[in-house]
Simulated scan of single mutants.
Amino acid sequence: MTEVESPPAAPLDLVVSIINFRTAQMTIDCVQSVLDDIGDLRAHVVIVENGSGDGSDVVLTDWLTAARAENPDIPVSLVVSAENTGFSGGHNQGIRAMKARFYFVLNSDAVVHKGCLAALLADAEAHPETGLFAARLEYDDGTRQISCFRFPTPGSEMIRGAQSGPVTRLLKRYDIPLDMPPAQEQIEWASFAAIMLRGEMIDAIGLMDEGYFLYFEDTEYCLRARRAGWGTRYVEGARAIHFRGGSAPVKSLAKARKRLPAYYYASRTRLMYQSHGRIGLLAANLAWYLGTGLTYARLLLTRKVNTLPVEREMRDIWTNFMRPLGDRRAPK
């Protein structure tokens, strides 16, 4: 791992961690939106070039060199990782880069509105018992995205398998997405596309779990924080546009019902095991089978279903079942 210039010596109020993986121009746009919002805040941006292997390191280095020529004091550092360390590993590098009271984890496929950072920090000062502060995520037309959730359970896996209105209504208390904006007490976890973490909480519970390559690491971190007494809040006044899907293929594969990457199922298994133990993991898989069975029964009877399982999912949900904390199945 290498860094462009040394981080500031004095502790900061806020460090913004942004991972780049083959989205160099998108990352630059993201960083620029943060720089436009920093104002008088004692803040610094850390870009983690996460082993893209497509020349992104050169593009970002050239951009930062040119930016420093115009403004030698620009609060941006670049960390270049020799390999793709995943979402957790990438942001852990960003967080380790320098000390701050708060850390804003931000996707490269997002841009912040003016006032986003100040709103997050103000909410954090008003709620010292809370460890995580989720920004309002929007589509580019301003429509609010669903970004706050309940934890996955065997009940939610039955909902996911069944894809049926009656089943969802019957098991409503297990349905993962929350109505937006959510009641603060309902929030169990929130998207890490744009979320601020309290440094004191990180010191207490540790960094993100690098046993996750991609997906579910945000859920696990909120679960670990909650178990340690740190809650999650939604900050409506902190707005960010989230374009979605900048460097991850899972949503597009799922929409096309193509086979999902092994790391997705390895992360799902790890989370279910850490949340509910081995019996809970087994129950989640069996609940998904039951829900999926209802889907196929409905298909036979009515020829109408919302969706069917993706390719090979009936086998792939057993990924790492015997060793839930084993290989994270990162792509080679």
Rank of each mutant, 00 (worst) to 15 (best):
G280P: 04
R278K: 12
A262L: 05
T269F: 05
R298T: 10
T302E: 15
H276E: 10
A266C: 02
A287E: 03
L294N: 06
S275P: 09
A262W: 03
T302Y: 08
H276A: 08
K304H: 06
N285K: 06
L308M: 12
V305R: 00
Y265R: 03
A297N: 04
N306G: 15
G277T: 05
G277Q: 10
A297T: 11
N285D: 10
N306K: 14
Y273P: 10
Y273V: 04
T302C: 11
P309G: 11
T295S: 12
G291T: 02
R298D: 13
Y265L: 02
V305N: 06
L260Y: 06
H276C: 03
A284E: 06
L294T: 09
L271A: 15
Y289R: 11
H276L: 08
Y263A: 09
N306T: 14
A283G: 15
M272I: 00
L286G: 08
R278C: 10
M272E: 13
P309A: 09
R270V: 01
L282P: 05
L260W: 07
L282I: 03
L294E: 12
T302F: 01
A297H: 03
W288L: 15
T302D: 14
L300M: 05
N285T: 07
R259M: 06
L308E: 12
R259G: 04
Q274R: 03
A297V: 11
Y289D: 14
L286K: 02
L286V: 00
M272H: 14
A266L: 03
W288K: 15
T295H: 01
H276V: 00
L271K: 05
P309Y: 05
K304I: 06
L301G: 15
N306A: 15
H276Q: 11
Q274M: 01
